[in-house]
Design a protein around this nucleic acid. Structure first.
Lengths: 244, 244
DNA sequence: ATTGGATAATAACATTCATCAATATCCGAG
DNA sequence: CTCGGATATTGATGAATGTTATTATCCAAT
């Protein structure tokens, strides 16, 4: 299955060949972005919906103090808000982390596709609900988990999301995020995340080297994270990657 | 304007009398909940959409350690996820904080209303986007703001939300949240929030007494919070309650 | 191969916040 | 009114994390 958008949505519900063809059609002409390039900035007027096909992208916000908080990672197959055009201006920016290939889908295209393919509409709404669940999980992590737990939890989340679009190897996957980027996502400093990564490595749970994560002991990692995959609402994960 | 749901949505877009009547119709038979009563629990199968008409409600999650994280406050006029029925089970619970009056709207009712009133559909989607913006703002707060900044930011948010449904007085509003509840929402301990509240009181920014907040110095409060109301996407706020 | 900027690793010290503990205050049930 | 549980206040102490600084490593451009 070539198209990541189709692949991602297929992880949430059954799509027929017709649905898949429609999804491929609207994402046929992606645009390339280089690392650190903004897809859209805070304050801009919202435009078409973005669908990431290759590479990693994030939602972020810069505070007056200059510090940055990343609020979401978008990986291949992920789309940003369906109805975003309804708002007068963006309350956050969206930026490529790596070189990325991103398709844009106009509101009109989207609406006609959803009208003609109710199953796609359903699945897109599910994807939206899952994204909200992920945001809530981030809130929980930031509020009530220690730094090590938070790192472990994020890695579990990203591993499963990568896995559901076929981007994982054997207990290992590509994670093109610098420690600085991870720190900005987890609300900690780059120095501290480095300490925590060492700790997780020495504990034999996981090891992050430039560009890739090795899950040394899934059970231990899940236990540290207190991870429960339920909130990702994927069908057929059967990973054994859950706490309770 | 009696119905808080109508009032809240009117703060986002223009609704005509017909729209208002339809909204009132679907929320005509609310049910009462007592404080601490669950509307729905984590693991339950999602049912109808909830619309809060009176009182305060929260989304929350209990961690294995027993600590609680509140992920959202719903006040009168607020509704929970439109399409929630698409998911097999809830990944978090929803609970009344105070005595609350809550209407339930079935997916069928909702869909037929949105079909007959495209303007309502539009506005509900806007409300959903705003709720996401609020979640993102919480992530930013938890990740990059100090305890005092976080408290100040939440109070600014809640003040404006309360204001847009007519629940505020002169630089003051009813906030029926115990320090423990606030702590669970802000990812801190009850002890620490108590200290921070004292600090904010001594700084002359705001004072919280049982059940109500007095904003002593709006400019100072906004400045401490680094608050920018933009993300609430309300029309006509004109509050002067923003940082930049 | 060499260089320079970004990234990573480590240490010393400072700060924020959690934890534990004790007391005070409020408010509803009787 | 008064009793008791929930809530709020305050202090002392320690753990987790931020800050600043220095050095090491990687990698892309020359």
């Amino acid at each position: 299955m070539a198209n990541r958008f189709v692949q991602k949505l297929s992880g949430l519900a059954d799509l027929d060949a017709d649905d898949a063809a429609a999804l491929e059609r609207v994402t046929a002409k992606p645009r390339r972005y280089v690392a650190r390039q903004d897809l859209i900035r805070e304050g801009d007027e919202p435009g078409p919906m973005f669908v990431v096909l290759e590479g990693w992208v994030c939602r972020y916000k810069i505070l007056p103090s200059g510090s940055r908080q990343i609020m979401a990672f978008l990986m291949p197959g992920d789309a940003c808000d369906l109805h975003i055009k309804l708002l007068a201006q963006m309350d956050h920016g969206i930026q490529a982390i790596t070189t990325a290939s991103v398709a844009t889908v106009s509101r009109e295209q989207m609406e006609s596709m959803m009208r003609d393919h109710p199953n796609i509409a359903r699945t897109m709404y599910m994807a939206q609900l899952v994204d909200e669940g992920i945001m809530r999980a981030w809130i929980v992590s930031m509020g009530r988990r220690s730094a090590a737990e938070r790192v472990a939890h994020l890695i579990c989340e990203l591993y499963l999301r990568a896995r559901s679009i076929g981007l994982t190897g054997e207990g290992e996957f590509a994670l093109p995020l610098s420690q600085l980027v991870l720190a900005d996502a987890l609300g900690m400093t780059a120095v501290h995340i480095n300490r925590v990564l060492k700790e997780l490595r020495l504990a034999g749970a996981m090891a992050l080297t430039r560009g890739s994560v090795t899950i040394l002991d899934p059970v231990k990692l899940v236990q540290i994270a207190g991870f429960d995959e339920n909130y990702l609402h994927r069908r057929l994960l059967l990973t054994g990657l859950s706490a309770r």
